[in-house]
Design a binder for these strands. Structure first.
Lengths: 221, 221
DNA sequence: TAAAAGATTTAAGCATACTTAAATATTAAT
DNA sequence: ATTAATATTTAAGTATGCTTAAATCTTTTA
């Protein structure tokens, strides 16, 4: 199972199940930095191996077999992220980039060793759940990005997703961390800014960042 | 730099510099588990990239550039071995096998992080020196395999090399570890056995094992 | 020394993972 | 509804990393 195949399956899985993005060949190609024709070819070939369903001009769908393989890659990715974060002084972006490489060079045995050593973690440092060896606990269904939250409501931060070092730096500086609670004070639609209250401070977050912060509602009292 | 290329260069380097084995295409092919033709082809192509010198019917020689790349792979391999050995409950064979995969998926930055975290180790758990980021401290020139040692002399164990789990198990059971001193009591040439004294015990080692144990003379007093 | 055996090289081919360009289909705009 | 724009697919090609088989070279044996 090559790194290319693994990344292809993983990308489809993440788009479809985690990010509600379309899984047409062009979108996958763009995310992977390859040509459209390469994506179409890969889709056709992986379809022949029963890893996905390819129909001309339709979005790609993983088969159960394809999903299972994607989950194994995701699992290894997140185990490495968790392990690197706990063991070394590395940033969230660094652990992600290294895990992108390591996930394709990790035996199932090595993954099991990491899993046990880490005492079977449920989440990685970005807030993403770590699939167990059999499957995956679905992402929380009622989460949304901060950009789309309602004013005067309280939320808890459950996921941070970005390739931007500045984003993570901003989060760190402002205590925007997994598990912390915030209150959405005001949504400035025209300027696409979100004002929140966190730890007694008011801060304003631009759309580029608020679209990377997943939150879930805190129960009302 | 693909894993195949890295393994090709690494194998040539190990055969030539560490194990005094011939580096003809057939030997490299056998070690890598590929066909002779594939090895010849790879050699020709890597020659075009100035990573080695390929002359028909001659042994392969790495260029300085090829050596440098091989050393980086070896360095990463041994850093991973050392790290895995210290961090997890894994056998010497297991760490070797996992490092064989991980070495090709490790950024230079990740290697540096491992190096510093491990406090710049000089040797890995097999007794092999870990190249620093610029080069390599040559293997000890006066080492030899236990099979070829002289009777009534004292040696120190400096290197253990095998793909055999039983070999490592045997070493573990008998305190055959890097740094330990032994005395060669008798060499039974006919039966190819080596009798040694270690930690007050006499044990007899068959050739299959004694050829995997590298030792260096202890200074005479 | 000649023949046999073994090793290496060349040739032809396959699979994977891409590329660009042209053809085709779908979507958006008017 | 028609045209323009965009996306996807097909076609032809490259590079990598192999394979087997035949040809050639080197080494060993008798």
């Amino acid at each position: 199972m090559s790194a290319s195949t693994e990344n292809f399956l993983k990308t489809i899985y993440c788009f479809q199940k985690l990010e509600a993005r379309d899984t047409k060949p062009g979108s996958i190609a763009k995310a992977l930095g390859i040509s459209n024709a390469a994506a179409t070819d890969m889709a056709r070939k992986l379809s022949e191996k029963d890893l996905l369903e390819y129909r001309k001009y339709q979005a790609l769908q993983l088969t159960p077999k394809g999903e299972s393989l994607a989950l194994q890659v995701i699992r290894k990715h997140r185990l490495w992220e968790t392990f690197l974060y706990r063991t070394f002084d590395m940033s969230l972006l660094e652990i992600h980039n290294e895990a992108e490489l390591l996930e394709h060079a990790t035996s199932d045995r090595m993954a099991e060793i990491l899993w046990n050593y880490l005492e079977k973690p449920s989440f990685d440092p970005h807030g993403d759940p770590i699939p167990n060896v059999y499957g995956f606990v679905d992402f929380e269904k009622d989460s949304k990005v901060l950009f789309k939250t309602e004013e005067d409501r309280e939320y808890r931060i459950i996921r941070l997703v970005s390739n931007d070092e500045e984003f993570y730096s901003f989060c760190c500086d402002n205590k925007i961390e997994i598990g912390n609670e915030i209150k959405v004070v005001k949504q400035y639609s025209k300027n696409q800014l979100t004002e929140i209250s966190i730890h007694g401070r008011q801060i304003v977050i631009p759309k580029e960042f608020s679209n990377n912060i997943y939150v879930t509602k805190v129960n009302e009292q």
